[in-house]
C-alpha cells in the first residue's frame, strides 16, 4: 500500500533542519549555511514492512517561537520533528513550552524531538544538561555524520502508519 504523509520540521533558525532533510533525502551534507526562506518541500518514499509511505517533507524557515510560525504551513500535517541545536542553549531553553504548545494545538499529531549537532559536543555532558533541564529528547542526531538521521524519519513513518 502506498500512502502520502506530510511532515514538518520545526525549530529555531540554524539548528540544522535543512541539513537533516538533505542528509535523509540526498545523503549529503554541507558546512555552508543557507537560511531557508519561506518553505522548501522535498519528498522521499520509505518502505515500512509491506507498506510504502511517501513523506512530503516541509522544511519551513526557523522561528524562535512556535507561535510565530505561519499556521497555514502546519495544516494537514501528520507528523512534526522539533529540532534544536545541542550546542546552543537558546534553541532548547524553552523546549518544554514549545512542546506543550504543539501538543495543545495539534493534539493528534505525532511529534519527535531531536537534539542535533551532537557531533560538536560531548554527548554525556549534554545528557546531564538535558536531565538537569528536564528536556524531553527522543533522538540525538548529527546531520554531518548522519548519526540517527534515517532512524528518526523511519520511526516517524512507522508511527504514521500505526
Amino acid at each position: 500500500m502506498l500512502s502520502l504523509k506530510k511532515i514538518v520540521l520545526v525549530g529555531h533558525f540554524g539548528v540544522g533542519k535543512s541539513s537533516l532533510i538533505r542528509r535523509f533525502v540526498k545523503n549529503s551534507f554541507s558546512d555552508d549555511y543557507l537560511v531557508t526562506v519561506g518553505v522548501h518541500i522535498v519528498k522521499k518514499t520509505v518502505q515500512i514492512n509491506n507498506d510504502e509511505i511517501t513523506l512530503i517533507i516541509w522544511d519551513i524557515e526557523g522561528k524562535e517561537d512556535m507561535q510565530k510560525l505561519r499556521p497555514s504551513f502546519l495544516l494537514g500535517t501528520s507528523g512534526f520533528i522539533y529540532v534544536f541545536d545541542a550546542t546552543r542553549e537558546s534553541t532548547y531553553i524553552n523546549l518544554s513550552d514549545e512542546i506543550n504548545y504543539i501538543e495543545t494545538h495539534y493534539p493528534k499529531i505525532n511529534l519527535l524531538t531531536v537534539a542535533n549537532k551532537i557531533d560538536l559536543i560531548e554527548k554525556n555532558t549534554f545528557i546531564k544538561i538535558a536531565e538537569n533541564n528536564k528536556l524531553k529528547i527522543d533522538y540525538f542526531s548529527s546531520a554531518k555524520t548522519g548519526e540517527n538521521v534515517e532512524l528518526i524519519f523511519n520511526d516517524l513513518a512507522k508511527n504514521l502508519i500505526k
Partner: peptide, 19 residues
C-alpha cells in the same frame, strides 16, 4: 516536474498569499 512537490509548493504559495 514532480507533481507532489508542485502541489505542495502551490499550497504553500496559496497559504502565504491568503495569510
Amino acid at each position: 516536474i514532480d507533481e507532489d512537490l508542485l502541489a505542495g509548493m502551490l499550497t504553500a504559495i496559496k497559504s502565504f498569499v491568503e495569510d
